[in-house]
Amino acid sequence: MEPTAGSGDPADAAGATASVVTLHVNGVARTLAVDHRTTLLDALRERLSVTGPKKGCDHGQCGACTVLVDGRRMLACLLPAVAWDGARVLTAEGLSEGGRLHPVQAAFVARDALQCGYCTPGQVCSAVGVLSEAAEGHPSLATPAGPARTGGGLPPPVRLTPEEIRERMSGNLCRCGAYAQIVAAVGDVAP
């Protein structure tokens, strides 16, 4: 029915409206034909039954769909699945392997950094992204001006003060207002 690009290579499907892609979701290669309109979020939720990423606004305004794509936090609701063929996608489900919580997840539980839970998987993925961004020396608007790098070395890590965490986590709305607990949880895991 659907005009699907047949080769499994979505690189040229100008005339087709669907393509076959492979997404490495939580360590498992998943190959599927996607409508070009399908976002990574809908591919995960509706096609692959990975419902940890939530649809809170579907327009990049709430952060509930935050996942880690090739190691960086992004909003799955704005990524066309076809464009991310071959990507490694990590969701809250994949952060905890074999029943063991990721340290961020454990901190969220210990700090009670959740209420209704709908923003929580996105908060958790966002926090994991924040930790690596800070470790790589990525600044935020809360980062004091200073030497970004002296000489040719790597930038120094950014220390995650509560102010840094608040600014960096501000793309993840929590209408229940668990912010204080979330900031504390991320702070617990920060080096």
Partner: peptide, 21 residues
């Protein structure tokens, strides 16, 4: 006490109304 559903929620396994298929 820790929230009973906290683990389900932080691991994305808690299911909401649109997630039943």
């Amino acid at each position: 006490l820790e929230r009973r559903e906290a683990r389900e929620k932080v691991t994305g396994r808690a299911r909401y109304a649109a997630e039943y298929r």
